[in-house]
Amino acid sequence: MIAHAAALLVVPIILVGVVNRTKSCWAGRKGVPLLQAFYDIVRLARKRPVYSSVATVFVKAAPSVVLGTAVVSGLLVPLLGRRTPLSFPFDFVFFAYTWGLGRIFLMLGALDTGSSFEGMGASREATYSALVEPAFFLAAGTLAAASGKSSFAQLLRFRPDDPATAVVWCGCLVALFVLLQVESARIPVDDPSTHLELTMIHEVMVLDHSGPDLAVIQYASAIKMTVCAGLLAALLNPLDAAAGPALFAAANLGLILGAGIVIGTVESLIARLKLRSIPEYIFLAISAAFVALLASTLRRGGLG
């Protein structure tokens, strides 16, 4: 439990560092130091925030709610091992709605600043997250149905043992990877280092936050990315209970950081999509999850 909390606090910083170092490596530059996210957060925490004159309670409340929901969602996901601090039947539904709560406060905070860019960003965020939610539910639901379990800690242990389950497993992996790209604002959905406010989705919503508020939001996004990577790692981890908890946890963390390298590599190889094409890309995730659902249903029906 303590180890899980420690991982939830430390791994996000390292994961952000790994993604950035991978990108630097591809570009041929020395790049940002590995722990830069930590230095940034420490610096931001020591600055005095500035608030817009039209801002009300939402701008000030948003960072705490966003961090709180990110941490709670992190407690539901098996980052290190086979047990999670929080676990109950159908907790993946609670997970999705926790994220939803965080998202709505982020959007309200963005709208509260009265800036037209942040309003645009909020509307884009609402659209794309609404589009990707079915993919998440289809994937998690299919894994639940296929494995017969209903809690994250257990349904992510689903492993393929015949062609049909292999299709289920692959479809869910694809869906979860696209979910990571959408929720963590990575290329091809969004460019986290862009300076073009008219193209931003996530970054534009935080343009008016400063000091500790910004530190909290940056940290929360890193936690969200870790959580998504944790989902993938748990689904991919090849070891089983016999390997012992320490080795299992190490493998899991290794896979999470490996996911970081994959994210960084994907970001370095392709360009970002036109905003109008993002729903098509998300549809890819929905289709993959739907195919997984079909495969699972057919298998249980005795076919395949």
Binding site: S24, K30, G31, P33, Y39, K47, H195, D208, S210, L214
Partner: peptide, 17 residues
């Protein structure tokens, strides 16, 4: 490569030092 020193340009004055 300014970023190797932890120095970056940001999009908003609120994010800047």
């Amino acid at each position: 490569d300014l970023s190797r020193f932890g120095i970056q340009f940001v999009a908003s004055p609120r994010h800047a030092d």
